[in-house]
Design a protein around this nucleic acid. Structure first.
Length: 468
RNA sequence: GGCCACGUGGCGGAGUGGUUACGCAACGGUCUGCAAAACCGUGUACUCCGGUUCAAUUCCGGACGUGGCCUCCA
């Protein structure tokens, strides 16, 4: 099986050839834990989860390592912790520990609800301060960094190919720069590796005094420590291309004798909400947690997968309804059949679906395959094995992971009406129908419909569903 | 201002140098007391202007539009 991935470094689709097929390694930038993760944060998590699954399928689960970090040292965290400390009368230190632990746990619960597998490793930045300090020392020794006024800065001028990922030269960037340059910087593009901390800020002892790391160094240090100097894939959102990933490359290559940290750099596109940029001021800031109160995690996931990962994605309620509707129909089809992951060699999964995904993770192109198969299975009385194959294939994308019984039961729970009341209404309506009082029968049905209940008459009985 | 993406039918969304993607919605039909569901059938597209070509939605150039980055935001 040949996997092709679009590499930001070369701006081309390339065949994916791991350095070592018995040790395939991927690093994805994870969240900074200071607040609930929003739906935009969920995109890379879901996208790279599918890639993780594909790699496990292609190379064998034991031979794929996926690292997604948790950034728990950051000035946004410090600011939030200071607010909390003032409000709750606890120490900043305690507030910070509480904030990062709770937010990280919340993030992990949220993305689990979105059907994401746990990464192989989820390192915390604060667990790797020593690795960062060592890396900074290596950068200084190699002539790529310098200390100044308690800071350590990366000397961009020492790296002639700086800008190769973002495809822009320092000169070009300077042309539009409106930022005031700190006086201790040698070059205006130089970025911070280490900065001094005051008493209210978290700090660690270092050769340059008590301080804390800059933003970019943690990913370089953790990637290098956990995956080695060179690994296969590095992923994240497009907005991280510059400066974050560009700086990671500069740091890792500078500290590792020029060895590139990753060979394939993958970036997912941005997400908008109802056609607008998501922002708190517009009031369209959607957290995963809030969305999960209104929608099944699987529907959120389906909606995220509707668009190719590199394309911009417009997140709308309208599309979410379609997602639910599609999943409803598929659950109706498969019922409570069990998946058969051991039958991964089945035609659909092993050839059609995985080949489609292998083309730069073209998940939207795989959807017609599901629709087609669902249509074929609907036309006849499908064998259980066929339904199991359908479910197994959907499971590959992290979809249809429940039984139909559980799926529809969960939907019914979301209704404000008591189930007994609904049954009573149905009986009253059926009595009216028997008496040919269709006006009354329609009145009852409309009344339930107004409350989101759809009735379905069959020759035998009347059942109900939740309308979304 | 500089750099980088993207622009497909009512909506969402793949793809391709010449043949129906697909889904939702809409419309018609079967079924139904009426519906819902299901099934069958139908229609509509490639932002604009140039260029290359026998042929471009697909390649090249430009315009316009949208988004991202250039200030630690996925």
């Amino acid at each position: 099986m040949s996997i092709r991935l679009y590499n930001t470094l070369t701006r081309r689709k390339e065949e994916f050839l791991p350095l070592d097929p018995r040790n395939v390694r991927m690093y994805v930038c994870g969240p900074t834990v200071y607040d609930y993760a929003h739906i935009g944060n969920a995109r890379p998590v879901i996208v790279f989860d599918v890639l993780f699954r594909l790699l496990r399928h292609a190379f064998g689960a034991p031979y794929v390592t996926y690292v997604r970090n948790i950034t728990d040292v950051d000035d946004k965290i410090n600011a939030r912790a200071a607010e909390m400390a003032a409000a709750q009368g606890v120490s900043v230190e305690a507030a910070r520990a509480d904030l990062t632990a709770k937010t990280a746990a919340q993030f992990e619960a949220d993305v689990a609800a979105l059907g994401c597998l746990s990464p192989t490793l989820s390192p915390r930045a604060t667990q790797h301060i020593a690795d960062m300090v060592a890396m900074i020392e290596a950068l200084i020794a190699a002539g790529h960094a310098y200390a100044a006024e308690g800071h350590v800065l990366y000397d961009v001028a020492s790296k002639p190919d700086y800008g190769k990922l973002a495809k822009r030269s320092p000169d070009e960037m300077m042309a539009g720069a409106r930022v005031e340059v700190a006086p201790y910087k040698r070059g205006p593009m130089d970025f911070v590796l280490w900065k001094p901390s005051d008493d209210t800020q978290p700090g660690w002892d270092s050769p340059w005094g008590r301080g804390r790391p800059g933003w970019h160094i943690e990913c370089s240090a953790m990637g290098g420590r956990l995956l080695g100097e060179s690994f296969d894939i590095h992923g994240g959102g497009v907005d991280l291309t510059f400066p974050h990933h560009e700086n990671e490359i500069a740091q890792s290559e500078g500290a590792h004798g020029g060895h590139a940290p990753a060979r394939y750099w993958l970036h997912n596109g941005f997400l908008q909400v109802e056609g607008e940029k998501m922002s708190k001021s517009l009031g369209n800031f959607l957290t995963i947690n809030e969305l999960l109160k209104d929608w099944p995690g699987e529907a959120l996931r389906f909606n995220m997968l509707k668009t190719h990962y590199r394309q911009p994605l417009d997140w709308t309620v309208k599309d979410l309804r379609v997602a639910v509707k599609t999943l409803d129909s598929w659950y109706k089809l498969i019922g409570d059949v069990e998946a058969r992951p051991e039958n991964a060699g089945a035609y659909f999964l092993s050839y059609k679906l995985s080949d489609t995904l292998a083309d730069d993770l073209n998940i939207p192109a795989a959807m017609p395959q599901f629709h087609y198969m669902a249509a074929v299975l609907s036309e006849k009385t499908p064998a259980e094995a066929e339904l199991a194959e359908f479910k197994t294939a959907a499971n590959f994308l992290g979809l249809l992971t429940h039984t139909a019984s559980d799926w529809f039961a969960a939907k019914k729970q979301a209704v404000s009406l008591d189930e007994g009341d609904i049954r009573q209404a149905i009986e009253a309506r059926n009595a009216a129908r028997k008496a040919k009082d269709f006006a009354e029968a329609d009145r009852i049905r409309d009344e339930l419909l107004a409350k989101g209940i759809v009735l379905k008459d069959s020759p035998k009985e009347t059942t109900w569903e939740v309308k979304r």
